[in-house]
């Protein structure tokens, strides 16, 4: 199985999950598949309720909660109210409290490297998806460079599922494919290449890419092939 199909397979499982246990299974599998030390998904809603899943050691999670490290964690300070992904190196670790916090986190095995994706959901929902690892700067830079897209997608997939599992969630939140997205994905499913899709819809190939990109995210798909498969299996397109 190639790396990409393995990820697809795990995300497929996440999509099918009918409870929070499924999120935990998926995050452990993704952590192993991406070969990193840790992966965490953490959500805070407007009422301040927290929920999360991930692979941090239980002792560290407990320690974090007991000490209320939300207040000193530069990752939280740097991501809350923001929407750009952050390499931990770019955060402000200059205060004494945050340096002590970092040292302690490393001693619990969190790792010295990290990448966090903040997500803004509906009604003030805020979530954070993090990948952390122990390693040198060059290797980490190469990893984030290669996997930024995957991490954005996985972050989105977890948030999507977490919203899905909310009891009072309004059903219309589930995002429908737009007519243009349906057109583009349908033509791809018929075996057209991007140039042919563009020509058929009289739009540019770049614009085809935008529609396919948006459809992929809505479908939680790793790549175009995966998006086509999902659209077909959900009956969203007819080929």
């Amino acid at each position: 199985m190639t790396a990409s199909t393995a990820l697809e397979h795990i995300l497929e499982g996440l999509e099918q999950a009918d409870g929070h246990a499924g999120l935990q299974v998926a995050i452990e599998a993704l952590r192993d598949e991406m070969n990193v030390d840790h992966m965490v998904y953490h959500w805070v809603d407007s009422a301040g309720d927290q929920y999360g899943c991930g692979t941090y050691p239980a002792e560290w999670v407990q320690r974090y909660l007991d000490q209320n490290y939300l207040r000193v964690d530069p990752v939280i300070a740097g991501c809350y109210q923001r929407f750009h992904p952050v390499d931990w190196k770019r955060l402000d670790w200059s205060s004494k409290a945050s340096r002590a916090f970092q040292k302690e986190a490393i001693s619990y095995g969190v790792g010295n490297q990290g990448f966090s994706v903040p997500i803004r959901g509906p009604n003030g929902q805020f979530a954070l998806f993090t990948v952390s690892h122990s390693g040198n700067d060059a290797d980490w830079a190469a990893f984030t460079e290669e996997h930024t897209r995957s991490m954005l997608l996985i972050a989105h997939a977890f948030n999507h599922k977490a919203l899905d599992l909310e009891p009072d969630r309004t059903p219309e939140h589930a995002q429908a494919l737009s007519p243009r997205e349906v057109d583009a994905v349908t033509l791809l499913a018929m075996g057209y290449n991007r140039a042919q899709v563009a020509q058929t819809l009289t739009i540019s190939e770049h614009t085809v890419r935008v529609y396919v990109e948006s459809a992929r995210f809505k479908l939680g798909a790793m790549n175009t092939t995966h998006a086509v498969a999902r659209a077909i299996s959900r009956g969203l397109i007819v080929v």
Binding site: L152, L177, S178, R180, E181, S214, F217
Partner: peptide, 15 residues
Amino acid sequence: FPHLLGGGSISSLTI
């Protein structure tokens, strides 16, 4: 402006 997008919405973390 959904009508200018050909109907529906655009949604992605990369857009």
